[in-house]
């Protein structure tokens, strides 16, 4: 049973690592949000699942699973809210040739 917990925890830490690297390396806000939104949710899910396995089938284990499900539901919602707010306040997305999207209508009606 502990082996499962160790493996899941290592996988969770790996996804946290990728999220952190994505947060630091990507060129602009949207791609950073793209990286961290997904990998953090998965990292939290895996590591909390591993800890729930370690806690065994007790009241605490079920509560840890509840936290994992809660994070699984709310983290994408928070990511969406942040992205919507950034897009509405006209944060310029990164373009390869550096030309702003402003020339074309950013939000096609």
């Amino acid at each position: 049973m502990e082996i499962v917990a160790i493996l899941l925890l290592c996988a969770g830490t790996f996804f946290y690592l990728t999220g952190t690297v994505g947060l630091l390396r990507f060129p602009d806000f949207y791609s950073r949000m793209h990286a961290t939104g997904k990998s953090d949710t998965l990292g939290t899910l895996l590591s909390l699942l591993g800890l729930a396995f370690y806690a065994g089938f007790s009241f605490t284990g079920v509560k840890i699973l509840f936290i994992a499900v809660f994070i699984f539901l709310t983290s994408p919602t928070a990511t969406h809210a942040l992205l919507r707010a950034a897009f509405d306040s006209k944060v310029p997305p990164w373009t390869k040739d550096g030309r702003s999207l402003r020339d074309k209508e950013v939000r096609r009606k």
Binding site: F29, T36, D40, I71, A78
Partner: peptide
């Protein structure tokens, strides 16, 4: 900064 704060939030949870 908001992205960083929210990422730190989920990490401190674990």
């Amino acid at each position: 900064r908001l992205v960083g704060a929210s990422v730190i939030g989920t990490k401190t949870l674990t």
